[in-house]
Nucleic acid binder design. Sequence first.
DNA 1: TAAAAAACTAAACAAACGTTTGATTTTTTA
DNA 2: TAAAAAATCAAACGTTTGTTTAGTTTTTTA
Lengths: 211, 211
Amino acid sequence: MRSTTNFEKTDKRQQLLEVAETLFARHGFEAVSIRQLAKEADVNVAMVSYYFGSKDGLFEAVLAEKFPKTRERLQLLAADTQLSPWEKLASTIDIYVEKFMNGRNFHRVLMREMSLKQRPQHVKLIAAYMAENQQIIRGFIEEGQVKGQFRYVDTEMTIASVFGTLSSVVNNSNLVTGMNEDNMYTTAQQTRVKDHLKAMLQSHLMVTKAG
Amino acid sequence: MRSTTNFEKTDKRQQLLEVAETLFARHGFEAVSIRQLAKEADVNVAMVSYYFGSKDGLFEAVLAEKFPKTRERLQLLAADTQLSPWEKLASTIDIYVEKFMNGRNFHRVLMREMSLKQRPQHVKLIAAYMAENQQIIRGFIEEGQVKGQFRYVDTEMTIASVFGTLSSVVNNSNLVTGMNEDNMYTTAQQTRVKDHLKAMLQSHLMVTKAG
DNA sequence: TAAAAAACTAAACAAACGTTTGATTTTTTA
DNA sequence: TAAAAAATCAAACGTTTGTTTAGTTTTTTA
């Protein structure tokens, strides 16, 4: 054993995880070979099986690293008693627009794994992570409804529209004038998406219009 | 040569095309092997290369068969002078909800190929087909704006929200209460999606509210 | 009906895949 | 510092992949 107090786990294990996140995001799960991962991480091919059991295990380890981060941010919003339901929703939009557009490659991989129902293990895991986060967002909308500030719209479909818009933008930026793969990280492009989502949600949800 | 007046082209060619549409839809492009295709179509493996040049060529032939059908329906709507812009938009929603939810497997493949930018040929082709159709829809919204019936919203982002919602529903039905892979073809589920999209678009677009 | 063209086939090709084996090196334990 | 445990490695395993080759059968042409 290398060290018992190693909070970063083994070097090579960590290297593999980081390279995996990058390469899976860039090329997709099946397009990345174990040899490619090993070479990029400067590690022997056998280490993937050694540390993660399999290529699938490595992918799941990447998920387990990334998902909890966003959930913590949402929980912070939920706990904030100063914010109105609409303000929470608006902040949620900000969070997710940035998350999707900055980390577009990673999100593309998730969507691909969800639509390609080839690996049920991945589908189940990702769906579970997503459901957790959406539950919190649903709380924001229902809070607004209870307080008489939001209409009683189809909450689940409304959330689907938000995430769907983001998927659409990330997967298909070329169908939006002026937007492309390379400027998606800019404030200008992200502001455009934020503004649209907020405007659309506001007219859809708000009982009384006004900022 | 088999026959010059063969409007169905060669039998085996057609068989391959049909099997390809089914199998690509069911499992995705890369998950289907040429041997699998050939076996299912009761054809020799070499016929794929013979008729379509490659597996990619076969995929592109499937696209060329499917896409024009929807475009024709949209063009019919565009040519109808009896319909208001909103009625055209509402019909468009009906068309696409049915198209996506009934042909969900096929649409999943398209989205996968778009997000997995691994095969630029496919991406370009699909994007071009999509852009053609979206151009027509854009016309409906702009017509409503010119006629003073619609607000001057971000048209492209609004369209992205419609298609995004559909993608989200099709890829992730399990996140919507009561909806799943197997009941998505039912009127009840499709009506739910249609109602949501129309309600959301109406409050987003309409200058004066009312059905 | 004989020659030419097209359709079709079985077999082989080279490359890439995820994973395992068995041995070696490095680190930890005591 | 010797024994035990963990980490690392090169090499090989068996499969599967998309495509091609070289030959045979079927159809069309004239």
